[in-house]
Structure formats: C-alpha cells, structure tokens
Amino acid sequence: MSERLFYANQLAISRTLTRIENDRSVAREIIGSLEERDYHVVGITGSPGAGKSTLTDRLALLSSKEKRTAIIAIDPSSPFTGGAFLGDRIRMKSSTKSEEIFVRSMASRGKVGGLSPSIYDAVEFLGRSGFDRVFVETVGAGQSETDIENLADVVLLVLAPGLGDDVQTMKAGIMEIGDIFAVNKMDLPGASQLATRTGAILEMSGRELPIILTNSINGQGVEELHNLIEKALGELDISGAIEEKRRRRTLYNNLNSVYQIIKEDFSENAKLEELMNYLLENRRLSDES
C-alpha cells in the first residue's frame, strides 16, 4: 500500500492500531514492514483541568492545514478493573469533526510511566503510515510527564491558574521537563503571575524557554503557540538534534518492550519494576557520558 493511500485509509489505520495495541510482536512485524519516515511527535502534558484537550484540539486543527495530523489521547485505566473512560473526544470538537485529523483514544493499561505500553509502537506506526505530526496528550498525572520526554520531539507543558500549579509543579519537579510552556485560561486572575513565576523558576534552573499565555476556549494565543512549536521542530531539524530525539525514542521503545516482556512473563515478580529502574538509570548515565 502506498504511503499516501494508507494515510487516507482511516479504517485500515484504525484496525492496525488495534492489533498493535493488543499484541507487541505483531506490532513489531507491522512496523518492520513499513518504510522509515520522517515525522514529528508533539507531547502535551500538564495538570488535569489545565485545558490540555481543548488546546490539543486547536493545535491539531492548525497543524492539519499543512501537515497530516493525528492525535493520540491517553486516559488512565483503573488499576482494579482494567476498565477506563476515554472522554477526550468531548473536548476535541474540531478535530473529531475534521476529515483530515485522525483521533484515537488509548487507555494507559496500567503502564508505570502513565503512557500506554504500546504508545511507542502506535506513534511509530502512525509516522510510517504517512502522518507528519502526531500529538500525544498524556493523562496529566503520575509519571506520564516524565515518560513523554522520551517519546516526543517537543514537549508542551500546559499550566493554568487556580490549580495550585505554581506550587505543585515546583514540588514535583515537573518543570524539569517541557520545551514550551503554555499558561492556559489566560482570562482567569492569576494567569500572568503564573507566567512570571514560571519564567523565574526556569531562569533559576538555567533554562530559557518560551512561555506563552493562551485561552484554549476562544483560541487566543494558540496561533503563536502553534508557531512556537513549528519553530522548535524546525530548529531540531536544522541542528540535526532531531536524530538524537529519534534515537532516544527507539531506545526507549526497546526498553519498554523489554519491560513488557519481563512483566508479562513473570508478572508475580515484584522486583521487576526495580530492575526496570536500574536499566533506565544505567541508560541515562551512559547517555550523559
């Protein structure tokens, strides 16, 4: 199947994604059968209630004017029943109405990092099937924020006033991740203070990163945000840093698979998670050297 055709065939994409989600080795086979392709992954994270979904919706719509765009929205699975509510489509009105954008919800299915265990494969598959931009919206709680760093080329951290973001994010160290910061709900009191404080915190940690005020409901600031993301991706392409990002993505995809294999085969072994952390730690050390 030609690239363009595959992209256009939402049904084929959708059905293949299900196979990828349900079986890791099948996923490998499918991805292996498709040629490698350049595409970009934009990660969107932040506290629940910050307006991630609405913002993702608007960004995807802008992106879809030039690029073939897909969204993967992740929601948490219940640790007790394995069931999940996937409600992101409610807030993604434009994208779900658009003929151009492919929207898919995924349950986290108990993955430690908060992303879905098959997320790497799903993203890689979408990229190879012809999508240029894949937006990945995280659960927005737990460890998904740190995991998204390994998956995405550019990470957008969405904050909003009134959520205790200023205090909490500092505490959690979430601000260590994120390449672009959006202070959403800019119409609410406290938004500009939050932006200022975010800037100060970043400066203290020696990172100078763009911070932008947005209103995902009426779209204010979203176009600038879109341009910032495009610019960041463009810079990655030009500097060649994108290659490093992709290398890291593959690396983590592999590690993730290792984890899955071990976990599925010896699920009663409580030590496995610890073992996984060692592996990740080692890897990080070797990267830094």
Binding site: Q10, T18, T81, G83, L86, T96, A107
Partner: peptide, 29 residues
C-alpha cells in the same frame, strides 16, 4: 457499569451527529 466491568469506554458527549458517531467508532475501532 461497563468500565467497572473492565471495559474501555469511549464517551462522546451530547449532540452527536450520525456522522460523528460513526467516525468515532471507526477511528477508535
């Protein structure tokens, strides 16, 4: 109830056109 029975439930919200319903079913498989 479906979630508590271990299923993954996609909820679309109110006022969906037939088109949107079918599209959701297709994209979410």
């Amino acid at each position: 109830a479906l979630r508590d029975a271990g299923m993954e439930v996609i909820y679309t919200g109110l006022r969906q056109s037939a088109d949107e319903v079918v599209k959701a079913a297709l994209q979410e498989d």
